[in-house]
Design a protein around this nucleic acid. Structure first.
Lengths: 231, 231
DNA sequence: AGATACTGTGTGAAAATTACACCATTAAAT
DNA sequence: ATTTAATGGTGTAATTTTCACACAGTATCT
């Protein structure tokens, strides 16, 4: 059985850690593998880079093929290069992350046979994953936890129009602690990159909250190019 | 001529951006290549990863072979994977950086023939480098500029015993701006991880300054594991 | 009409950041 | 011995930022 599998001398692969936020919980996208090794295991969406595509392009393609998702802005965050991380040979993997809105509409549907299905799974209570994917996830989570406080990544996880309470609960989920409502609002609004809309939340059985959206243009103006690293 | 060169299907390489600080200037380590392609060009120390070594191990080995330097704590910071970044084929490179004390004693002396020599070069006024090494350098510089404000990396560039003025001038060099002496000192000392020594600077023709050293133990205690990302 | 569940708001205390200028000390030059 | 050149070392007040903390308002459901 094992003998049938090819062995690799030197192969690049990509693995993707895609975060989403739903029902107050932070989740990641997993696939159920349909291919040896680790057939039937849960894993991060990941596959091998082709000869004629850049790693950024490969990341997009691979994620699409395994989950049906496209056009996310993924960012490389670490490369894993232990000798024995893949049972068939030498495979170095470049890991990417992205944050996206979980959208009931967008169906998760693997295009290739390599994945049997793709689905969201809460980041708490993650099962054991194939290869070194648990470690890859952990590294990714650490990165976004930090980045949340520097970069406007929270807005990628929320619907385009969101309430301040939703925004706060996202921060609370990622940082795993309660924040003070008044201080949180004051601070967020003080940045000046949230645009207050004339709309309100709908379909809630309590007072409807105002909706906001993230204003990329104002953000860019305020923080010039890059970031507010040194005020 | 070109025909003699092997062509690669899929190869991993490592490139190293090694920062040093000397005479108030930030410098990086370059080599003069002695091998095609880009023979005679200046380049970052870099070479190909072997089958049976992890990328971290490869980084150490390669830096040693090309420069004679060992036992630095290098950190991976980005992987460059454009299709045509190497003229002979598909080469993905994992880039590492380190910060070290430039030490007159430690001779820079390539072990292999691939480099003709290795030397320090100021980061301002860098010449054109081989491959995409200019871009790699730029990315590295951006990283450490940010990291300087979060992580105790400045001390890796200074001699073990240093004066506060030296420390300040390092910050000034990296951030490229003047800082206020009193505020700088107040802040640095307030962190509580600098240990004041009973020694003074020697051999200067003006009032000798007190020497300090970075106290790793205190630092770890103050900032627990990781960092002060969210106070 | 009342229960429920969330929205939305202000103030004062404490801490951190910023701006700012002068005398002290040493070695070298005269 | 005196001067000069160069850097070392120090404090305070104004401003800004962060933090802790509680309650009335409003929409919906019954």
């Amino acid at each position: 059985m094992e003998a049938k599998l090819p062995s690799f001398d030197s192969v690049f692969s990509i693995d993707c850690v895609i975060f989403g936020f739903e029902a107050g919980e932070l989740k990641i996208l997993l696939i159920e593998r349909n291919e040896e090794p680790f057939k039937d295991w849960l894993a991060l969406p990941g596959y091998i880079v082709e000869q004629d595509e850049s790693i950024d392009d490969a990341a997009e393609r691979i994620l699409y093929e395994l989950t049906g998702l496209r056009d996310l802005h993924m960012q490389q965050f670490h490369t894993f290069g232990e000798v024995n991380r893949h049972p068939q040979g030498r495979v170095i993997t470049v890991a990417y992350y992205a944050l996206i809105r979980i959208n009931g509409q967008k169906e998760l549907r693997p295009i290739t046979q390599y994945a049997r299905k793709a689905f969201w799974h809460p980041v708490n209570e993650l099962p054991k994953l194939a290869f070194d994917h648990s470690e890859i996830f952990k590294t990714a989570f650490g990165k976004i936890r930090r980045r949340l406080n520097y970069q406007p990544i929270a807005f990628e996880l929320l619907p385009e129009k969101f309430t301040l309470t939703q925004l706060q609960s996202l921060y609370e989920a990622v940082e795993n602690k309660k924040l003070d409502k008044r201080n949180f609002r004051k601070k967020m609004l003080s940045y000046g990159f949230l645009k207050e809309l004339d709309e309100k939340q709908k379909g809630v059985s309590y007072r409807a909250a105002k909706l906001y959206k993230f204003d990329r243009r104002r953000y860019a103006k305020i923080f010039h190019n890059d970031m507010n690293i040194d005020k």
